[in-house]
């Protein structure tokens, strides 16, 4: 299903394709290691003006901020770089990780008194299966495969280096952008007008 070229599969999020259907949320609840709990985030950006929604799985940072700020040393990475939920015996429920994560991923589950987060379905990927959310996602906004497969079939470029203030963050999970190095933005001349600026042509007919 995956690796055709010896390259190991990667997880890719393309927020622009999200249709807000919640299949990912519903499927995350069905995952074998945390049945009944969804660990994925699906945000409605601003429903009053747009149907844009955005799914967020754990980005699995190389040097995870959540683990850095954990006073109990409860957040561990696997050898493959997967950042795991807090170890239950160690987690003190302080929620430092919840507040510190630059991507807003960890969830403090009060009922369990434990931080839980997406572990990219380690139980599935270790058996060669895709993570649950990337399996079901109808629009392939959440996608799991090799970079070669992505390059062969999908438009956009893969990005996994982020800068938050002075903090550089590299992640296992990729996002999709039109151009990884777009150069300086020219905000003065603006962009070409799109129908999205006025979907119903109200400006022309306003008077």
């Amino acid at each position: 299903m995956t690796s055709h070229f010896g390259d190991s599969p990667v997880f890719v999020i393309d927020q622009s394709r999200c249709i807000g259907c919640e299949a990912c949320v519903q499927a995350c609840v069905e995952c074998g290691t945390h049945r009944g709990q969804s660990l994925i985030h699906l945000e409605t950006i601003d429903r009053a003006t747009t149907t844009q929604t955005a799914p967020m799985v754990c980005m699995h940072c190389q040097d995870p901020t959540c683990a850095q700020v954990c006073p109990a040393d409860a957040i561990k990475q696997t050898e493959g770089g997967i950042v795991q939920s807090a170890l239950k015996p160690r987690c003190i429920g302080c929620s430092n990780c919840v507040l510190a994560c630059p991507f807003g991923v960890p969830k403090y589950m009060a009922e369990l008194d434990q931080m839980m987060k997406c572990d990219m379905c380690t139980d599935r990927t270790s058996e060669g299966l895709k993570p649950m959310c990337a399996s079901v996602c109808p629009s392939e906004a959440l996608w799991y495969g090799t970079r070669e497969e992505f390059a062969a079939g999908r438009r956009g470029e893969l990005l996994r280096e982020f800068r938050f203030g002075r903090q550089d963050v590299q992640t296992l999970v990729y996002t999709v952008v039109d151009d990884v190095e777009p150069g300086p933005l020219d905000v003065l001349t603006g962009r070409a007008r799109s129908w999205l600026d006025d979907p119903f042509d109200l400006e022309e007919t306003a008077s």
Binding site: A23, A27, V136
Partner: peptide, 10 residues
């Protein structure tokens, strides 16, 4: 190819 909407999942 494995894809499902929320109705299919549930």
């Amino acid at each position: 190819e494995g894809k499902l909407c929320p109705k299919g999942v549930k």
